[in-house]
């Protein structure tokens, strides 16, 4: 995964709340190989049923949307669909916890912004696409000419910027992990599966 610090592109609005993972990628697509790309599956059934859907007319890098985005299942394929479509940042008042974790592991910024700011952005974007610029190094974005600040955990920022993989980070702690494992099973033998 390659990292990024700044992106410029267009932003569109998806004003619904609770856009869940089953909408983001219907389950029937999840047996497909990632190598073929998941972008075409993004919000597939919603888009097909709504000719005027913004994602049928634009290929934005930024989405602005309602609360509880990405709620539901742990399917990382929901993030794959967004990333493969070309989206690098989603701005919303809140995100499903598992989705937010999956996002940072795939170079997707899940930027939490207060409800009032989101409503202002949604009103400015309407059904169209507007210019956007996002800068991870300053935790600031400009969307449709509106300046937005977002909270970003410093470790998540470093992961997004460097494209880091946790497995490499964790490998540095192998000795501590091995010691922990030995101590746990010595003190609590029941924690190992019987048989």
């Amino acid at each position: 995964m390659s990292g990024w610090t700044q992106i410029s592109g267009s932003a569109v609005a998806l004003p619904d709340a609770n856009i869940d993972t089953d909408q983001l990628i219907p389950a029937r697509f999840m047996s497909q190989s990632r190598a073929d790309g998941y972008g075409g599956f993004l919000l597939h059934d919603v888009r097909e049923g709504t000719p005027g859907h913004p994602l049928n007319h634009h290929t934005p890098k930024v989405l602005v949307t309602g609360r509880n985005f990405g709620s539901g299942s742990s399917r990382e394929a929901a993030v794959y669909a967004l990333v493969d479509f070309g989206i690098r940042a989603v701005f919303a008042p809140s995100f499903g916890d598992i989705f937010a974790g999956n996002a940072v592991n795939n170079g997707l910024l899940a930027a939490q912004v207060d409800q009032a700011t989101i409503e202002t952005l949604l009103a400015h974007l309407g059904n169209g696409a507007e210019q956007a610029h996002v800068d991870l190094s300053t935790s600031r974005a400009s969307i449709a000419g509106i300046e937005v600040r977002f909270a970003l955990n410093p470790v998540h920022a470093r992961k997004l910027i460097n494209g880091w993989d946790d497995i490499d980070l964790t490998a540095q702690h192998a000795d501590e992990i091995n010691a922990f494992c030995a101590a746990r099973h010595a003190a609590h033998s029941w924690a190992m599966p019987a048989t």
Binding site: E76, I98, G101, N102
Partner: peptide, 14 residues
């Protein structure tokens, strides 16, 4: 629950 990247991490490191 965890996503696929985290599943890989757990498989690799427990």
């Amino acid at each position: 629950g965890v996503g696929a990247t985290e599943v890989a991490h757990i498989l690799a490191t427990q």
